[in-house]
């Protein structure tokens, strides 16, 4: 687990917001489902998702079982300097996932 697909523009213009799309592979197990023998599958959802731009937090989401499996997010970040966007998420089991995208500001 703990992987994601990230999409950012190839080039961003300084001072302008650019689109970020991320799709994280995670079952977002609600804790209400049962397996084939009727045993409850324990809840395990991403609790928190953070996006940092050159180490500065710019966007975060607190999630719940109300977020669909394989969470998809699309949001905007304002371009300042070339560098990187770092994504981090932690689930109920404490498993941490990360992803990164290079940002080129012109």
């Amino acid at each position: 687990m703990a992987d994601a697909r990230v999409n950012v523009p190839a080039e961003c213009r300084r001072g302008e917001p650019f689109e970020v799309r991320i799709s994280i592979r995670h079952a977002m197990e609600t804790g209400y489902r049962t397996d084939a023998i009727g045993k409850t599958i324990p809840r395990n959802v991403i609790q928190r998702f953070t996006c940092r731009y050159n180490a500065v937090p710019v966007f975060a989401v607190r999630m719940s079982p109300g977020i669909a499996a394989n969470p998809y997010l699309r949001f905007f970040v304002t371009a300042l300097e070339s560098g990187s966007l770092e994504f981090e998420w932690v689930d109920d089991d404490g498993v941490r996932g990360t992803a990164q995208a290079a940002i080129k500001v012109v």
Partner: peptide
């Protein structure tokens, strides 16, 4: 869910999928 903005955003335009 809670969408947090540690810095003042220049554009608030968010897509997500919910159950």
């Amino acid at each position: 869910a809670v969408f947090e903005f540690p810095l003042p955003p220049d554009r608030v335009d968010i897509d997500a999928r919910v159950r």
